[in-house]
Nucleic acid binder design. Structure first.
Lengths: 335, 335
DNA sequence: TTGTAAGCGTTATCAT
DNA sequence: ATGATAACGCTTACAA
């Protein structure tokens, strides 16, 4: 497939292996004339350096991993991930590195997969997405000194992360509902073991408390970020008679809307709905969804950039980046 | 990160490097007692062989690529890809290999990316998805002798592929509509430069011709597999007064349904709709979508299996696998 | 059954 | 500015 070696190019261009290496790596100290000759040959035979040989000595692979622990069904349902991947992949392309996808599905031997992926030198570092607080992977990676950046806040100062401002975003959403006069505001949360699930509920609480309103726990129900799951959860929540619902993600909001419609409630006349994400679908559903926009692709791109800096040693200390969120008002809240 | 070497394990267990290598690779001809001792040390220090060093000599990386040429927006919208990825990733996990994601976005320097990814020895082979007929990548890969399997039929006998039975599936769909008495059956196709787009239209044609019915070209409109695009296309098609529409994918069908609803047509009373894919969303939309089920995950899994066999040399000749499709009847066709 | 030694294709150090 | 040469960590004959 790629039978050419440095040695061969050297022979063909009548110089030594080292000179060819210098040309390939754009080192100075090569006579322009020689450089040109070598480059021509390289071009001609379509030579490309062998990655493994190279990384054996440089200790760099130019490959980063996207690690998704506990890869559950959600990944293949929630458009969040495709958007995230796009952000990561385009940054990789731009920076000349490559992306390895590691889904730690529950069935796989976690320990063996961990060693294969993280201890074999395959990867220069990893972007970790969709972690739960109790995931044993992160502590292990910290201990092993693996370069990593989490997408989503992680409550350990040693780990770098990039996150949306979930608390502020959801607080804005609920404040908007309050401003519209709603007092019985229910919320279908994400999994509370996941940071965004937790944080978006926190924003909900803060909005109420800032107004001096009590938090009625019966209006809070834990969902799983999915459409189906949230629909079922909302169905049970109907009995509490909310006039508005804050859904912790757009798929959640869709599920909520389905449950409401199935129960004959009109949106927003009977019940207002606000989501979180601003996925393309938010502006397509009927009625169009008021939601909190988080910059998913940018999350991926920023995480990747940061990871690359960490790897290069451009920054040493763990970094924590929070990207702003923004309320996008559409029809579903009736304002 | 992984400072251990074979040499070190050898020293620690009082044997030679080669013996450790034999233990690691499960070679026979190692005294059980010695094997056990070495394994204990390996376990203790958490040793894992260095991938690059290993592949430098074996010429295998245990990494396969998922190559998506012309990676357009669709990839991040159409649930087809997440499902495909799931099939590929779980097979990779099961077979101890890893997955590299290569999106050839239009902005990237195709040639440079090609060499980096395909000629650097990074990959043992690739699964190629979503190709167009005129993509220059495939011929180049054939020429370079790269192990590959296409997801989706490719009209060159030298390339292996795995595909759903698109022609048969869409033919069944249209035959079903004919059986229900429809005679003005429109179709919103996929991009006709893509094989599945082409094949699903072919099935439509065959169904009509088998009944001796003329194919009215004004009832055929080219879409792009997307919801938004198809909605616009359907809007224009309304004027032709179809009583049924065959949509070439589920997202297409959703777009079609939206256009119909927006025009005040009832489904299925005024117009029947049939889709293609059977994504989870098909059973969620209102009315539930009659559609042709194609086994997307299995497509990915089969392609990966085949690729691995090709790499191992277990099979030499290009293989062509067609997986069966199946009509799933729900409410949207009113039967 | 075990050890010795020769590569694999690079980069990097040191002379020249 | 260029060329030997020694690593990098592993597998694999071949020898013992």
């Amino acid at each position: 497939m790629n039978p050419n070696t440095l040695e061969e190019i050297a022979r063909l261009s009548g110089v030594s292996r080292s000179t060819v290496s210098r040309v390939i790596n754009d080192h100075p100290n090569v006579r322009p004339e020689v450089r040109a000759r070598v480059q021509r040959i390289v071009q001609q035979v379509g030579y490309h350096p062998h990655a493994a040989a190279r990384s054996l000595v440089t200790k760099r692979t130019q490959v980063i991993g996207l690690l998704i622990p506990q890869a559950v069904t959600r990944i293949f349902t929630d458009p969040f991930f495709p958007h995230l991947i796009r952000g990561i992949a385009s940054t990789c392309n731009a920076r000349g590195c490559h992306l390895m996808l590691s889904l730690f599905t529950s069935s796989t031997d976690q320990d063996s997969l961990y060693r294969q992926v993280l201890r074999s030198g395959y990867l220069d570092g990893v972007v970790v997405a969709s972690t739960t607080l109790d995931d044993p992977l992160i502590p292990r990676m910290i201990e092993d000194g693996i370069h990593m950046v989490c997408v989503g806040r992680y409550p350990d100062d040693r780990v770098s992360y990039v996150d949306s401002d979930n608390v502020r975003g959801s607080r804005m959403a609920v404040e908007h509902l309050l401003r519209l006069g709603h007092r019985r505001i229910a919320t279908v949360t994400g999994p509370l073991s996941m940071v965004p699930g937790h944080d978006r509920l926190e924003g909900y609480r803060q909005a109420l408390e800032a107004r001096g309103l009590p938090v009625d726990e019966s209006l809070i129900a834990e969902g799983d970020f999915s459409e189906e799951g949230s629909q079922a959860v909302m169905q049970r929540l109907l009995a509490t008679g909310p006039t508005a619902v804050f859904a912790a993600s757009d798929p959640t909001a869709i599920g909520v809307m389905k449950a409401l419609k199935a129960a004959g409630r009109r949106i927003p006349d009977d019940v207002a709905v606000v989501g979180f994400d601003d996925l393309p679908i938010a502006s397509i559903v009927e009625p169009a969804l008021t939601t909190v926009r988080q910059p998913i692709e940018q999350l991926g791109a920023t995480a990747t950039d940061l990871l690359l800096k960490l790897i290069e040693g451009e920054v040493q200390e763990p970094q924590h980046v929070i990207l702003p969120t923004q309320l996008v008002i559409r029809a579903s809240c009736g304002s």
